[in-house]
């Protein structure tokens, strides 16, 4: 198992390198001179040269690339051009909010989606199957910002059960959790749709496998046949979906954060885009890349946990 983990870690390195290089190139090919953007068109040539020098933009591209890579490897994402503070510090203060939202969203989605998918497969064509189908359809067709606004209107304004602003400090856990419910449900709603669908089709497939007949022939109670024998096998595609949609969920958490006025990467991104804060954007892209590569790694490890056939190889 340890070797498996180490192997996956090593295999993630080339991906990480490629993504970082891409970020570097993307930021460089954006038209316009960052120094000019920052100082405005009234700036003197002298000031521009000085700023380019300070930002390391006056050396050959190749050197810039090496410097960038070296800095990232040391955990240095540069200084925000607009806020004049280290990018990493800015990100670090809000990253926990986004990660918390995403993970709780995924957790809620899986918590609701798995049983829904299992019951839908078990009672195929019955009312619970219909409920699952409609839930999936709604979850997939509502953009996160629309469902978020609807939720706010219904559960925070009409029925004031939850705060309108989806944030409270970590230091005050009850209020913090209450503020987390609606945004996390909003994200989870999307996840329920995916998870329920994939679980349902995975269960339909595994319930018709020979090993289910074997389990029944042993006298294994029907409940265990479904929740142990069939579900364990149906989990494999569910892991894929959760892993794949982690990236999408991060994207949706940006929208959700803005709708619910939560701190997080979402606000930071919107701010950086408005301000044309190139170093901030570059840093944010690096963070996203790290998170997605990390999610893929976690997915691979989860595969190993649910499917012994992968673990051994």
């Amino acid at each position: 198992m340890l070797r498996f983990v180490a192997l996956r870690l090593v295999m993630a390195l080339p991906t990480l390198w490629a993504v970082l290089s891409l970020v570097f190139v993307l930021v460089r090919i954006v038209p316009g001179d960052p120094a000019l953007v920052i100082l405005g068109d009234q700036a003197t040539e002298q000031a521009l040269v000085a700023l380019r020098h300070r930002m390391g933009l006056d050396v050959p591209l190749w050197d810039q690339y090496l410097q960038f890579m070296a800095a990232v490897l040391q955990g240095d994402l540069g200084i925000s051009m607009v806020r004049n503070r280290p990018v990493w510090g800015e990100v670090a203060t809000v990253l926990p909010y986004t990660l918390e939202l995403t993970f709780v969203g995924i957790f809620l989605g899986v918590l609701m989606g798995l049983p829904l998918g299992v019951l839908a497969a078990q009672h195929r064509g019955g009312w619970i199957d219909a409920v699952a189908r409609w839930t999936s359809l709604l979850g997939l067709s509502f953009p996160a910002f629309i469902s978020g606004i609807l939720m706010l209107l219904l559960l925070a304004v009409e029925l004031p059960w939850f705060p309108v602003i989806g944030n409270a400090p970590f230091a005050n856990p009850p209020a913090h959790l209450r503020a987390l419910v609606l945004p996390a449900l909003n994200l989870g709603f999307i996840m329920v749709a995916y998870v329920a669908r994939v679980t349902r089709s995975g269960m339909l497939a595994s319930l018709s496998e020979d090993y289910i007949r074997t389990a029944r022939a042993k006298g294994v109670p029907a409940r265990l046949v479904v929740w142990r024998h069939a579900l364990r096998n149906a989990l494999i595609p569910v892991v894929t979906v959760v892993g794949l949609y982690f990236g999408i969920l991060i994207g949706n958490s940006v929208l959700t954060e803005i709708v619910f006025n939560r701190p997080g990467l979402g606000k930071l991104i919107v701010g950086a885009l408005n301000d044309r804060d190139y170093t901030m954007l570059q840093g944010l892209m690096v963070i996203y890349a790290l998170v997605v590569v990390g999610a893929n790694l976690a997915t691979d490890l989860a595969y190993g946990a649910v499917d012994p056939r992968i673990r051994v190889r």
Binding site: A217, H229, N233
Partner: peptide
């Protein structure tokens, strides 16, 4: 008890 034709598929692969 019963045993079946397909030993390859009759056992649960994840247990």
């Amino acid at each position: 008890s019963m045993i079946f034709q397909e030993p390859m598929t009759s056992l649960n692969p994840v247990l």
